[in-house]
Amino acid sequence: MKVLSNNFAKFLILITFLQSFLSSECVMPIKKDWDYRFISTELINDTPDATQAFVELSRISRGKYGLSGNVTLFTGTFGENGFIEMSMYRSVRNDGDFLKLPYEIQKESFFKFMNDHYKTILMDSLKDCSNMPIVEGVYATDWKAGESLTFTNCVFQDNKDTPAHFQPGFYKIIGRVFRPDDIQMTLTVVAEVFTVH
């Protein structure tokens, strides 16, 4: 199984997450011949006593949607003791069988995620639509009880790693955020990739 270390595309937490996978198929920079649209999103919070969270599709303009949401930590801290993992699936049809792709983020600490995938891939897309931190050096700040992360109309921004070509279809990204024993959240985002001329 191939594990992405420096390339993971974009969604929080959750966001999170399509651009990182797209960048794993990077080609020489030429005119991009594809685009995407969000289809659905679902957040399952199995530990409401520890966190409050929601994510939804928000209309930006006709036919264009972003991701909006809020996550509030109620107890303790979330840092080296918190973990994130993600996986990606593809189907020809939205109602078809989704097959797992050989790209994933295996379990890694929140600090490692912030200093790697977030800093190099996600930050450019989230810095202007959320209160996520702008990481310039080494990130090592715990997320503390009472603090909230807020996202409003977030979309994935192209960067130097955005591939010119990407296979059309429906992509499902599943991200899991957890602190052993008392935080369990799972975010699922489905997007359609289509060809443009």
Rank of each mutant, 00 (worst) to 15 (best):
L122K: 02
T150H: 13
W34P: 02
K107F: 03
K32D: 00
F11R: 01
R176W: 00
S20L: 08
M185P: 04
F54L: 09
A164H: 10
D116K: 11
P133N: 12
K100I: 14
P180H: 12
V189Q: 05
W143P: 07
P102H: 08
F110V: 02
R179Q: 08
S24A: 14
Q52L: 12
T47Y: 00
R37T: 09
P168S: 09
P29G: 08
G63R: 07
H165C: 00
V193P: 06
Q19L: 15
D116E: 06
D33F: 07
F98V: 09
T47V: 04
L122M: 15
D124K: 13
D158I: 06
N94T: 10
G175F: 04
Y118G: 09
Q106Y: 08
N94D: 11
S5Y: 15
V71N: 05
P48G: 05
W34N: 03
K31W: 07
E108R: 10
S24Y: 09
R176I: 05
A53R: 03
T195I: 12
S148H: 02
A50M: 11
Q167L: 15
H165V: 08
R179Y: 00
I60H: 00
C26D: 00
L67I: 15
L57I: 11
Y171T: 04
I134T: 12
I183H: 02
V190Q: 03
K119I: 06
V189N: 04
K107E: 05
P102G: 15
N45M: 06
D161A: 13
S5N: 12
A145M: 06
T195C: 04
K107S: 15
C26Q: 12
P29E: 01
G76N: 05
D116G: 00
N94V: 14
Y65P: 01
E80F: 00
N45P: 04
F21C: 09
M123A: 15
K100Q: 15
L99Q: 07
R93K: 13
T152W: 08
C129L: 01
M132K: 04
F156M: 13
L73D: 02
M132P: 01
S148K: 08
D182V: 04
S23V: 07
T77N: 13
G96E: 03
I174A: 04
A191I: 01
D49P: 01
E192R: 14
F38T: 01
V92Y: 03
G69D: 01
E80K: 12
K160G: 09
R179P: 00
M28V: 09
F38L: 14
F21A: 10
F98T: 08
L18F: 12
R90M: 06
E136S: 15
A145D: 07
D128A: 15
S109H: 02
K160D: 15
F8A: 13
A145Y: 02
K107I: 10
T188Q: 12
T150W: 06
R62W: 00
E25R: 14
